[in-house]
Design a protein around this nucleic acid. Sequence first.
DNA 1: CATGAATGAGAATTCATTCAT
DNA 2: TATGAATGAATTCTCATTCAT
Lengths: 215, 215, 215, 215
Amino acid sequence: MDPVTSYGSRALRRDAAENRDKILEAARASFDEEGFEIGMEAIAQRAGVGVGTVYRRFPTKELLIAAVVDEVLAAIRDAALAASDHESSTEGLTEYLFTVGRLQFEHAGCLPRLWNGADDAVRREIEAISRQLLAKAQATGSVRGDVVYEDIATIFWSLQGVIERTATVAPDAWKRHLDLLIQALTQGDIPLAHAPLTTQQAERVKRESRRGLSS
Amino acid sequence: MDPVTSYGSRALRRDAAENRDKILEAARASFDEEGFEIGMEAIAQRAGVGVGTVYRRFPTKELLIAAVVDEVLAAIRDAALAASDHESSTEGLTEYLFTVGRLQFEHAGCLPRLWNGADDAVRREIEAISRQLLAKAQATGSVRGDVVYEDIATIFWSLQGVIERTATVAPDAWKRHLDLLIQALTQGDIPLAHAPLTTQQAERVKRESRRGLSS
Amino acid sequence: MDPVTSYGSRALRRDAAENRDKILEAARASFDEEGFEIGMEAIAQRAGVGVGTVYRRFPTKELLIAAVVDEVLAAIRDAALAASDHESSTEGLTEYLFTVGRLQFEHAGCLPRLWNGADDAVRREIEAISRQLLAKAQATGSVRGDVVYEDIATIFWSLQGVIERTATVAPDAWKRHLDLLIQALTQGDIPLAHAPLTTQQAERVKRESRRGLSS
Amino acid sequence: MDPVTSYGSRALRRDAAENRDKILEAARASFDEEGFEIGMEAIAQRAGVGVGTVYRRFPTKELLIAAVVDEVLAAIRDAALAASDHESSTEGLTEYLFTVGRLQFEHAGCLPRLWNGADDAVRREIEAISRQLLAKAQATGSVRGDVVYEDIATIFWSLQGVIERTATVAPDAWKRHLDLLIQALTQGDIPLAHAPLTTQQAERVKRESRRGLSS
DNA sequence: CATGAATGAGAATTCATTCAT
DNA sequence: TATGAATGAATTCTCATTCAT
């Protein structure tokens, strides 16, 4: 029944898939610990394969990074989905924000590229979930009405800033900061002085911001 | 003793100082525009000197970065001082936060290292100012009492995260985010669920976090 | 003895032979289009087999190249044979030269190795035909008597030089050049200042010159 | 008087220039012996410098090749100029052709790129000399009138073909071939069956044909 | 002191060949 | 036997740092 087991002709494929996973795992760990500056050779070694093997699966370092980032994004989406069927809309949004924060923390090395990958589909899913949760929370009046989706995205970026600087020393720093931000969403009632990002701007940020590349 | 010679040697020293400034300026501009990945050769060229001269003044790239960061920090301190004698304590703090935000934005290329330099003296001054402004604002009741200095530092890191990702596309994004955060400081009254960084942690963050180096 | 088995084993051999042909054909086309720099993987793909299969038939790239070159040489021999029973000796030689030129043009990617393969037998056949045609033409007086076989070989090399440089831009350039050379063979009557290659030299050229290899 | 010697401030320049020459010389020799496939590391070693030094002078391998080729072309032009003031037009053309042949032979490793460099000026000079010599020879009636400059260029390519294949084994083979070609130019009187290259085609050949590149 | 030339370790990527399935 | 995954040496190029002039 297991497709991998059932096809004899795919025995090799299983090895290859395992290797692919080993490589992705090694890359993820390497990036988490060292950032994207780590060399491909080191990743290969960590995965227990030759560089050539890494390049067979991921023809460029860019693509390897993108694959790792896509994995992280998929994990975020899954967590987002789990949070989205919370009974209370406020707690749903809160849990969601903390979940994303936690995942960002767990993959701190990937943060510079977290929102710049190839897998737009997943990013769009996450965006849709964010919008829904926000709308639900606003509908019940627990979140101020002048907040838009782009503010949520900005919160993620801001948490990245906190995490990037505090992760090794104060692993919970981002939680405190998120506490504050949630207060702003739920307690503040003075009009905000500045306009939010437009949807187009947020799109471009996700597509274009490239600081922290490996080359 | 010969006044000509001694003047000459002073002149030489002046030249040297001028060179140092040219290099610092070129480095600052380069980092702002390209980030720390820029090569030493390019900085030297921009300064109009040879690489050797750069290395005479700054024996490693690290030290050059640190010097530039110190300059930026000094600018922040100056701005902080200007904001600190505002009559209204609330507006003083607000202005201060926006000023730091703006300076961070203007030196976006330096952000990954902004709080990791050698010049602890300046950082301590800034810290002292922050503490004073915060205390004054809390004394008048306009800012919630459970906020501590470390939260202010975290706000700066948070703004860095926003700026790093949005600077080229949405230059005002960080202002909106800061609007939100100020609401949290002034409007929120629900206790924060998580503890702030300890002073020691904040110290270590400023000293140790090294992500974003050029090599 | 079992007819089914024996047939099966013959079928296998036929498959193998078909594979060999597919590979040779793919290699020939690849070399013609891209030159010897093309990778073995690409050839395998074009042939519709795995690299491993290519290596089973041709243990090194060298041997594959040699096999392709031998095929081209065989085609040249066949064309040479066709030209050799021309009634007019002069036209026979002329047609022969143009035929070889055309085949060289059609296999431009193979030129750097055209006369350096393993299959000496075919080369000897071509050589014999060349000698015969030349002798016949010289016997009728239409070709000058001081020309030897090695001059004919040299003409082929010279056409290769023209073809290699003009093939993509001026596909007929070699024909004009051959016009000129034929004039020299048939019209010139001033003694040639330099001696022709010795037979041994020509042999060594065909065996040793290795410029243009892929590695 | 020697500009290098006269300026103290250029003392370093002299070293650099010497190194540049060492590198060019090493590259020329390497290419002559091994072809363009030789690695940059090997060239650097032969020049007695580090790779970085090679790259300082010649930012890409392409540019190094182009520089070497330009040198060879310049040598050809000089030789061409010397041949062009021969009293007898026929001998002038003959000497010219042999001179170019000899230089091509001496730089056999550069042949695949000899007419594809950056220095169009030199190539144009050579072309102009060729045209003049040809016209002069045709004016005296010693060379057939239907030959055009492009035929001369083709002769060079033809010689390259011969040289590339025979250089190591029969260093004079190209001379014999050139004997033949000169007979065709001076003795033949039957109209040539095929049209010569157009000027545009010859231009494109010199610009575009890239077989034999290092990558 | 200033200069910029020299250095060389290291990074990404390719490809002929081998080998497990 | 066919497959294609794995290997790793080799290649081009970069850049922080040192050093001769």
